[in-house]
Each structure stands twice: as C-alpha cells, then as structure tokens.
Amino acid sequence: MNKLLSCRYNMDTNRVEARFEDGTAVAIDCTAIEDEYGNTSTQRAELDWLLYNKSLEYAQLVLGGKIGHYLSLGCDHGRLEEQ
C-alpha cells in the first residue's frame, strides 16, 4: 500500500477522504464502518472520537484491517496518544 499522506473527515458526506503518496485517493464510508464495527455505544463513541480528532489514525486502522481489533481492546483513545 502507498504511504497515506493526509485525511480529512467530510461531515457533509460522512466520509473520511484519504490521499496517498502516489496521488490516489479513497473515501471511507463511515456509516458502513459504524454499522460493521460499532456494536456498542462505547464503540460508536470511540469511532466518532477518532473521526473528529484522529482521522488519519482512523483511516490507517480501517485500511489496515485493524479497526475491529482496536475496538476489541476496550476503546481507549488515549492509547493513540501514547504511540
């Protein structure tokens, strides 16, 4: 996968728009991610927090297939601050 350069949450479309080093872009449908992985109110709150505060990390977790594992660890967005 190409290096992820930037992300931006678009509130109007409820998508995270990600741009890569090679100039390609992808839009992540946040409603679909929430429907798939937000099984509890705590998980949904964590997904929202990531969207608004750490959209780059959100995109990395989703695109890397690690969002489910991240949420299974107990929804503590402070963990991202420690890395």
Rank of each mutant, 00 (worst) to 15 (best):
V16A: 00
E36Q: 07
L73F: 15
T24A: 13
G74N: 11
L61P: 04
R15F: 05
T31D: 11
K3S: 07
T42G: 13
S72C: 08
R15M: 09
D76L: 15
Y58R: 02
I28Q: 00
C30V: 09
L61Q: 05
T24G: 13
E81S: 09
L80A: 05
V16T: 11
I28P: 00
E81H: 14
Y37E: 06
L73V: 12
E81M: 05
A25T: 12
T24H: 14
K54A: 13
A25F: 09
C30S: 03
Q60W: 10
K66A: 05
Q60G: 02
I28S: 03
A25H: 03
C30P: 05
C75R: 02
L56G: 13
H77S: 08
L80Y: 10
E82V: 10
Y58S: 03
L80Q: 08
E36P: 00
E34F: 08
A18W: 08
G68D: 05
N2C: 09
M11E: 14
R44Y: 15
W49N: 06
A59D: 03
V16L: 02
D12P: 04
G64S: 01
Y37D: 02
A45D: 15
Y52P: 05
N14C: 11
M1R: 06
E46R: 08
L47P: 10
T42Y: 14
C7K: 01
R15T: 09
Q43P: 14
N53F: 03
R44D: 15
A59Y: 01
Q43L: 07
V16S: 04
N53M: 06
M1F: 01
D29L: 07
R44N: 09
E82S: 13
D76F: 15
S72G: 14
T42L: 15
C75P: 14
D76R: 07
C75N: 03
D12W: 10
I67H: 08
R79F: 07
E17Q: 03
D35V: 10
S72Y: 14
D76V: 13
D12A: 10
H77R: 10
I33Y: 04
D29G: 00
E36N: 01
Y58E: 02
G65R: 01
A25K: 04
T24I: 02
I33V: 15
Y37C: 04
M1K: 05
H77A: 11
H69P: 10
W49S: 10
G38F: 07
S55F: 01
L63N: 08
E17T: 06
M1L: 07
V26D: 10
R8I: 04
M1A: 01
T31G: 13
R19Q: 14
H69Q: 12
A32W: 07
N2I: 00
Q60M: 05
Q60H: 12
E46N: 12
H69Y: 13
Q60I: 00
F20Q: 02
Y70N: 04
G64M: 01
E57S: 07
Y70I: 01
Y58W: 11
K54L: 12
M11N: 11
T13R: 02
G23P: 04
R15L: 07
E36I: 06
N39A: 10
M1T: 06
L73K: 11
G78A: 13
L51D: 00
I33K: 00
V26F: 11
S6H: 04
Y9I: 04
N39S: 13
L50F: 08
I67T: 06
G23S: 06
I33Q: 03
L61T: 02
D35W: 12
E81F: 07
L71S: 10
Q83Y: 15
Q43R: 05
L56D: 15
Q83K: 11
V62Y: 08
E82P: 09
G38N: 03
